[in-house]
Design a protein around this nucleic acid. Structure first.
Lengths: 365, 365
DNA sequence: CCTCGTTGTGTAAACGGTTTAACTCTCTCG
DNA sequence: CGAGAGAGTTAAACCGTTTACACAACGAGG
């Protein structure tokens, strides 16, 4: 049986609303109105149309619909990488909220490359995404900020919204929504926790100037040291990106390059902490018996290595981003939200006995 | 300066190709051709047009373009959840390949609900996605399979392609591409590895009938037992889903419910293994000293807990899916690919000394 | 019987691009 | 000098849907 409409040259093509109208014996407009449901129609006609739709297996053409002025109902998200659990959880939140609001979700990965990121935003603009959510930190030189501000304005002009998720504002005159979480506060809290346990020489892993997230966490670390009257030693701040193997590398290098002059480690995220922990174990050092270790993010694997860390509401971050963007039409919606963080104490930090450095406690029998 | 085109009622609206043409003093067709680059044009005209595009910050309307018959160049991926590392890695592969081929990526999450999955596919059909990649296992009753087959045919008719990624074929008459990896082989290999270490009573965690992935892994486990002439004890196969907390639950319950009658555990994925490991530790049992543990997937956190597991090329899976779909126009492209797996030996399995069960070695001083 | 809403349906004009056929030049060659 | 070729451009016809407007049928009220 040849149910499918066929053009004169014999090739199959997707069913159109015209085919449905013909099949049901009504006009195109009637079909459109019945399908959208926003119009009175005789039950008899409705049934005819619905039957035709079923029989021809018709689905509307989203392009034509979008062109005809219906809101495209899609939300775009741009992340560095999907595999990083941090981004994945935020992305899940975006997904959830988008689905809940009946929106489709477009996703692009930038690999942390500003150039790619801008290219993706351009694509999203072509697609007329209702909102574009940018997740995560990125190197922010002035030229880039300026270009991003331009895109924000272009999006706003097209009735769309730029949402910066977990990265700082571009300035008050840029039409962008910002959803952040308290990096500095979280880092301050966990550093204070280490200090309260008696640690005074705390290694910071993952310093990276020019990147907003590690910069804020480093700021919190420094502020906590200052608040407790502890000296600030730049030699304890190790540079590296926020990946697992970098954590391993940073710790290895530090252990190889001289005496161990620290008793605790604050890794600027859980991945770095995991890498560092592995390097410590390779060296025969146990966490927390020999070295205390703290992270940041509290993603599921943190529980496996009993890591004391800072909990970030990743999903909530993504959800809020979408919610604000879609609500932002009505006046009075917040344009800037700062989500709180929460200290999660597990078993990777141990109080330091009041012993001088270097006197290692012997293994208990 | 009012660079932006404005309609007669004074409201700003996005720039169209008509505005560009007017600004450059040429016709609409000329602009279109110069932008697509597929036509000779005088350099002087090209420059005028390009300048207008820059000055007006014009981007084409993807809907109009799609409607006019240009391939929409987008790839869709449907996963259970983005946060699960397994799916995330496959999704990353899909992303990579899609980006490399200049495609945009749509993503939908089904939460494992067949109903939602079908709804998403319908959406993707409306969007005219070039390919729809379905990732991961799902309960496959006959009604569902039939419906899915229908969608596959509908997609094929619209010039699109359904790709089943990591799940079995729907049958030879269904126009779908299948990219799988060798679940049974991998499970067989790692079970044999445990057996070779002397283990004969191996707990299987994560049995789930009707779901293709755990079923295949269970099949490999059973086949390995049979191949070594070991008895098959259904009591050693614990049912549960493939999540971390389920691993914890299954192991807890098993430990609570009677004597420990196994010396090794094969978890049907790494997450279950992590959960089980935690439950074992809570009980004072150490891996691998007291119990050997093996997983499946080899996702990054596996290294942190020194887990012996089966490596799956997740990214490659995603990449291959997209590649095959986009290449499938030319004849001679494979319609079914089976990727191999590889045993990764770390430190969670220990040879079993020839001691009778119950004689626990005392803690060394 | 005429007018007036109400209700359901049809007609045609957008929407913003691409593509085709036709047209206007300019240049070359017989 | 006229014909023909070919480069560069244009006007017009699509693509599939929504929607403003027109209109027909019908019952109710005067």
């Amino acid at each position: 049986m040849a149910r499918r409409p066929t053009s004169e040259d014999g090739r199959d093509r997707p069913t159109t609303i015209r085919d449905v109208a013909r099949h049901a014996g009504v006009s195109v407009a009637t079909v459109s109105r019945i399908l959208s449901g926003t119009y009175p129609s005789a039950p008899v006609t409705r049934h005819k149309v619905m039957r035709a739709v079923r029989e021809l297996d018709y689905v509307a053409n989203a392009h034509a619909r979008g062109l005809a002025g219906v809101q495209p109902r899609s939300v775009a998200i741009v992340v560095n990488s999907v595999t990083s659990p941090h981004y994945a959880h935020v992305a899940q939140g975006v997904q959830d909220q988008a689905a809940r609001e009946g929106r489709l979700c477009l996703v692009g990965t930038s690999d942390g490359d500003p150039e790619r990121e801008l290219a993706i935003i351009r694509l999203m603009r072509e697609q007329h995404a209702e909102a574009v959510v940018l997740v995560g930190n990125i190197s922010a030189d002035d030229a880039y900020r300026e270009r991003m501000a331009g895109y924000a304005r272009a999006l706003a002009l097209a009735g769309s919204h730029l949402v910066l998720c977990g990265r700082p504002s571009l300035g008050p005159d840029v039409p962008a929504i910002v959803v952040e979480y308290d990096n500095t506060g979280g880092a301050h809290a966990i550093t204070s926790h280490l200090i309260a346990a008696g640690h005074t020489r705390i290694l910071f892993l993952g310093r990276r100037d020019g990147y907003s997230t590690p910069e804020s966490r480093l700021a919190g670390y420094r502020a906590a040291l200052a608040a407790h009257g502890l000296p600030h030693d730049p030699g304890l701040e190790i540079e590296g990106t926020m990946e697992r193997h970098e954590g391993h590398r940073m710790m290895r290098r530090r252990l190889d390059s001289g005496p161990r002059d620290f008793t605790a480690v604050f890794a600027s995220n859980d991945l770095i902490a995991a890498g560092a922990r592995q390097a410590l174990r390779e060296e025969g050092l146990r966490v927390p018996d020999d070295i205390s270790l703290a992270g940041f993010d509290d993603l599921p694997p943190a529980a496996d290595i009993d890591l004391t860390t800072v909990h970030v509401q990743h999903k909530e971050l993504g959800r809020t981003a979408v919610r604000l963007a879609l609500e932002s039409e009505r006046p009075g919606t917040a344009k800037h939200v700062l989500l709180g963080t929460r200290l999660v104490i597990r078993d990777s930090v141990r109080p330091l006995p009041a012993l001088p450095d270097g006197a290692r406690a012997p293994g208990r029998p």
